[in-house]
Design a protein around this nucleic acid. Sequence first.
DNA 1: AATTCGTGGATGACAAGTATCCGCGTTAGT
DNA 2: ACTAACGCGGATACTTGTCATCCACGAATT
Lengths: 157, 157
Amino acid sequence: MKLSGGVEWAVHCCVVLSQAEGPVPTQRLAEFHGISRTYLAKHLQQLSRAGLVTSTEGRVGGYLLTRPGDEITVLDVVQAIEGREPAFRCTEIRQNGPLPASPQVCQRPCGVNRVMQLAEQAWRESLRAVTIADLAAGVLQDAGPQTFDRVREWLAT
Amino acid sequence: MKLSGGVEWAVHCCVVLSQAEGPVPTQRLAEFHGISRTYLAKHLQQLSRAGLVTSTEGRVGGYLLTRPGDEITVLDVVQAIEGREPAFRCTEIRQNGPLPASPQVCQRPCGVNRVMQLAEQAWRESLRAVTIADLAAGVLQDAGPQTFDRVREWLAT
DNA sequence: AATTCGTGGATGACAAGTATCCGCGTTAGT
DNA sequence: ACTAACGCGGATACTTGTCATCCACGAATT
């Protein structure tokens, strides 16, 4: 089980965007994080399709959050990149073989499936409990209160 | 994010094994679930390496659980197949770019990483809370009290 | 008109999951 | 002894998904 590396990029970008004063182009975000510009562009497009960011085209264009940071959860970002399909896919093997489960029994989802779904639910709840604003506050806590001032300054360059 | 399909097979096999009276060969387990024998063999070997099942070679050989079903959690099985690596891998992009996080700050793990780790922790706790015996009880509940009698009967064929 | 920017499609490299087959050693029954 | 059933490990493909790049296009600013 592996998460796309784009998730890390997207979350970090959202934290930066939550501190931006104007549209931030892909170029800037990629440069800031030291990552591939062209590939990051793809992920930002996914955030855009998911409605987490708005894009302004043309010169002085770029990306902006559609909502304040405290209204965007980490789960929102993860699902924008990873999609909403469950990690566990039940193939209903209980219906196979010499002693298949009856159609009546199969009206309820498979017990194994239920357990896996509950676990993923717990995972999502945990991610839903944290917002981009929480992460930004954590950065301030870890790296000092002037951190985002410097970021904004560099962004304006 | 996707779980290996082998997880589903492995969990179902453990439930069957928890009801077995003697060693069950791969052939039987594959036939019972209507799945590939040769590929299932690989997953059973993983369970064996993880110490969840013991194998007896030679004729009338097969697999047995090393512990009773109530001492094997779903998490044990999932980790035996999927490994113990976290789904989220932090690449420390905060150290990149024009405003890298200082080495002092980086002594603590990245805030994004902490959130993702917590979520995976919640996921694991949820899977750890359910045992193979619980799943077996669920099958009995769903499919009727004689279900495993029929399974044992077929297994003895 | 030229530059900067987002968008979508096409493409390719690479890793991982899926699946099969074979030779080997082991064990029980004949 | 011989054979049949079995687990084990390695080798080998096939498929899928991730990662990454490039390009042509339209939009907006200077």
